[in-house]
Structure formats: structure tokens, C-alpha cells
Amino acid sequence: MRATGIGSFPGEHQRDFDTALAVVLDELAADERGLPFLPEVPGRGAPAGMTGRTLGVVSELDADLQPSGWRLTGSSGAPPLDQRRARSQLGQDLDSLEEQASTHAGAFKVQLVGPWTLAATVERPRGDKLLADHGARRDLAQALALGVADHVADLRRRLPAATEIIVQLDEPGLPAVLSGSVPTASGFSRHRTVHPPEASEALAWVLGAIAGAGATPWVHCCAPDVPVGLLRGAGARGVAVDLTALAAADLDVLAETLEAGDSVVLGVVPGTDPEAVPGDGEVTDTVLRWLDLLGLDPERVGDRLLVAPSCGTAGASAAWARGSLRLLRTAARNAT
């Protein structure tokens, strides 16, 4: 069993990102039980958030910031200022990564927003979400596929010794997209349901681009009703879920995921400061009981099972953001 994080960290300044990266590398990179990752510090502003960082990767579409959030501009000229800032911020973060971890010889994970959460978040040039426009959401997914391939190539250049690059697509909005519960701009209605074949096709474009670039595609969703079967069918070789949000029906498909040789990341500690901090033995026992319920041997599962916070830790204190990684790493070591 290994330990990792979902992505986000608290902080408001560039120095907070540098500190977060140092924490991740210190807690996870130097231990075979750890999977280090590129942290996000969304408190630095919208260009540094999960949507801004992802739009910084997408070079085929231009976007700017409006009071309601990110919006495609529909222009074909130079990228808008806000998107340029997002790209510059990501470039700074990757420069810091290269400086601190260029000799890292293990696996390394990065995170981007998946096509459906992006479509449910970003607006069209004339208003309302991209989700409302079949053609626009198709263009977005294809542009994201091109962007992630270039992103993986850049990461390979910066981390030449890494044995594996993992790209995690964050899709917290996917269950709402599938159930037709994403509100329209007015708030008085809901966007139409996206049916599973279309959802799978768009995910497959992006996940396939990640795999085609030589990286391992994962998908994270901390919402209830995670469509694990759909994610795996679209090409995800790892799924990250919140253990407390799982339904009984999820158990079999997660067991199948592990038995097929793919990875499962279980969110087993809160993403914000808990009232009572659990002990590492308690966390280990929770995971072992879950494996026992599935009828799986911990030794057989091995490194394909990971533990993490239930979601990102941007809303946590700096102490818990670090302490949760240390706790998870110790719990993972206990299980081996």
C-alpha cells in the first residue's frame, strides 16, 4: 500500500507553493510507500486554481475571467491576459518542480480537471456553461486531449529520471452531469443529462491522449455515485474515491479494478482539520477491514492500493495538510 494526496494545499503566495512542494517531496518522495504529486495552491488566485491551471494547459481555446468565473472568448488572436497568467503560473510551478525534483527516480503524479467538470464550470462566449452546447463540449474535450499530451511531454523533460508519470483527471462534477443536476446560469433549471456513451467518449479522448503520451491515466471523483465502471471503460487505469461516499454497489467494481491490475486510491482521512486526529493504526485498520470485505489479500493488492485524504486540503491548516500525508504514509507502511 502507498500514500499520496489528491492535489490542493493551503496558501496564498508563490512561496506557499514552494513550501507545499517541499512538504510533498519530503513526506512522499523519499519513501517507497509514498507517491509524490504536484500540489495546487488555489489561494493564490483563479489562475492558480484547478480550472485555471487546466485552461493554462489547453492552447487550442482562449479563455478569460468574468465575475461568474472562467469563460471562453471565441477569439483567435493572442490568449487573453488571465489565461496567460494561468500559463505563467503553471510554468513557475513546473520550474520549481524541476529545481527541487529533477532527479526524482520514482513515480510522480500531476492533476488536471477532466472534460466534464470543465464543461460544467467554464462558460461559452455568450453565456451559460459549455455543458449546454454539444459541439462546444466536444471541442473542449478534444482541445484538452491535445493539451495533456504536450503537458506530459513537458513533464518528461523536467523529470527525466521519473519511472512513471501519472495524470489524474479531477471529475467531481461528473455524477451531476450524468444525472442532469447541473444548474443553468439562471438557477431556475438544470442542464440536460449527458448519457454515458457520450460521457465515456469524451473521457476516452483525454485518457487515451495521456496513455498515448506515455503516462498513466487516473480519474478522481470525491462525489457520491462515482461511475467507476464508466471511468475504467473509458481508459482510466486508476480511480480515486472518497471511502465514506462509496455505496455497496461500488465494492465489486473496485475489487475488479484491483484484480485487473489497476490502481485504487481510497480517501480515508478528511481534507480539512478533523476534530480528533485518527491514529495511524486506526487508518490502517480501516483499509484492512475494507479489503477483507472485498475478500482481497493486502499482499496481493500491493502498491496498487493507495490511501489519501478524501479530497484536496486547500481548506485545511498547513499543519494538517502536512500531517495528513505523514499519517497516511505511516498507515501505508503499517499495512506492508
Rank of each mutant, 00 (worst) to 15 (best):
F108Y: 06
T103L: 15
R85D: 06
R85I: 09
D62N: 13
V113P: 00
S76F: 11
A107R: 08
Q66V: 11
T73W: 02
Q111Y: 04
S76Y: 11
A101K: 01
V122C: 10
P115E: 10
D62Y: 01
A78W: 08
D64N: 03
A107N: 09
G77K: 07
S96N: 10
S76P: 06
L94N: 07
A107I: 09
L112G: 01
R87K: 13
A119L: 10
S102V: 13
S59N: 07
G69D: 01
R71E: 09
E99H: 14
A78P: 10
A119E: 04
A107L: 09
Q100S: 12
A78L: 12
P79H: 04
V110L: 09
D62A: 08
L97G: 00
G74C: 11
E98S: 14
E99T: 12
S68F: 07
S96E: 13
L94T: 12
D62M: 05
A86L: 00
G77W: 00
Q89S: 15
A105N: 14
D95G: 11
S75E: 15
T117V: 11
T117I: 10
L90F: 04
T103V: 15
F108P: 02
D62Q: 08
V122T: 07
L94D: 07
E99M: 11
G114R: 05
V113S: 09
P79W: 03
E60I: 08
T117K: 07
P67M: 04
S75R: 15
P115C: 15
A86P: 05
G69A: 01
Q83L: 04
D95M: 10
A78R: 15
Q111A: 05
T117D: 08
W70Q: 03
A107P: 13
D64L: 03
A63Q: 01
Q100K: 14
Q111F: 03
D93A: 09
L94C: 09
S88P: 13
T117Y: 05
S75V: 12
T121M: 14
G69C: 01
G114F: 04
R87Y: 04
L65C: 02
P79D: 00
G69M: 02
